[in-house]
Simulated scan of single mutants.
Amino acid sequence: MSRSLTNEQRIFLVKQWWKAGNTRVVNEAFQAEFPDTKIPARQAIYQLAKKFDETGSFEDAPRSGRPRTVRTEENMERVSETFLLNPQTSKKRASIDLGISRRSLGRLMQDLNLKLYKPRLLQALNEDDPDRRMEFCEWVLDSFEEDSTVLDRILWTDEAIFKINGRVNRHNCVYWNDTNPHLVIEQELHVPQVIVWGGIWSNGVVGPYFFEGNVRSQKYFQMLKDNIIPQLEEHPSFQTMIWQQDGAPPHYGQIVRDYLDDTFLHWIGHRGTVEWPPRSPDLTPCDFSLWGILKDRAYAQNPCNINHLKSLIEQEFISINVDIELCQKISRSVADRCQMCINTEGKQFEHLR
């Protein structure tokens, strides 16, 4: 940056630095004096002042022979120590602190085999959850061995909360190391804006259905009876369909369980014909795939209000519904996930994928 400045601007910067010794004050004065020139970076100001102090000039000293490389043993040690002491520092911050360009820093980090790892969000488990997860996964794999169509017949359903800016941004959560630390975050998020119900199976997606206010058993039952089940009954595979839902309180109401018992030969859920293991979003396609796809696509279009957000969600449901191959791939991937869950003795496995 300093090379693109005029001598007048360089002299001004150095004088302001001598007077204030504070880059914020220097930047404010520079912007006021030269409003059409980009403010130099803090490190550029440091280096400019240091060079003038040491040489009495802003010009680079003449060089002889081959240009000096930054990939020296000393710089390797400096970079290694920086990320060893603070592995969560950003590349930009390290570049400024070390006085090394980001491109050169990238080469040094590559030589040191430093890689970028981002944390994964995992659902915390209770003490007896692994056993219940194992039981469910064994049922899935045993059923799949007996009937290879079983995963195509399960309709996976769930509700999700969508908000205007409702995403966990992990792009700024970084960890540099030469081996994967499997850094994870266990966190629950409850910032309600609009509650969306949806389902996915190998024949496409079902929904969306938007709940107004809190979801209660009666409201959930009315949705099933008046909106969802009549729609599903028109599908030729309805008689062999297996309904899945998690153990959320609205799903557990007696009126809901009685209705599912009367409607489906088999259904998965809390006190269903097949027991659903609690705290297992890594085993249901809605959580590990559908909601992520929908939120990525909807938020990429910058919804300006709830009605706009609802419209975007409806559009994306239509888009996914025509991609039957994607729906089949997502639904059938449950078998592999169940096997991974068994391999980890019912514990979390998403961070190991």
Rank of each mutant, 00 (worst) to 15 (best):
L5K: 04
E8R: 02
E8Y: 01
Q9S: 11
I11R: 10
V14D: 08
W17S: 13
K19Y: 08
T23H: 05
F30G: 00
E33W: 01
F34E: 09
T37I: 14
P40M: 07
P40E: 08
A41Y: 01
Q47R: 12
K50F: 10
K51N: 07
D53W: 07
E54C: 12
D60L: 13
R71Q: 10
T72Q: 09
S80M: 10
R93F: 08
L98W: 07
G106V: 04
Q110G: 00
L112E: 04
L114D: 04
L116I: 01
P119K: 05
N126M: 02
D129S: 09
D129N: 13
M134E: 10
E145P: 00
E146N: 13
E146T: 09
S148V: 14
W156T: 04
I161L: 11
G166H: 03
G166F: 03
V168F: 14
V168R: 02
N169V: 03
D178C: 12
N180I: 06
V184S: 07
V191W: 03
V194S: 08
W197N: 05
Y209R: 11
F211S: 06
E212Y: 10
N214D: 10
Q231L: 13
E234W: 00
S237F: 04
I242C: 05
Q245T: 08
G253F: 01
G253P: 07
D262K: 04
L265A: 14
H266R: 10
H266T: 15
W267E: 02
S280P: 09
P281A: 11
P281F: 06
C286W: 07
S289Q: 11
G292N: 05
I293V: 14
Q301G: 01
P303L: 02
H308N: 15
L309K: 09
K310L: 09
E314I: 12
S319E: 13
V322A: 10
V322K: 15
V322E: 15
L326M: 15
A335Y: 03
A335H: 00
C338R: 04
I342Y: 06
G346R: 08
K347G: 12
E350M: 00
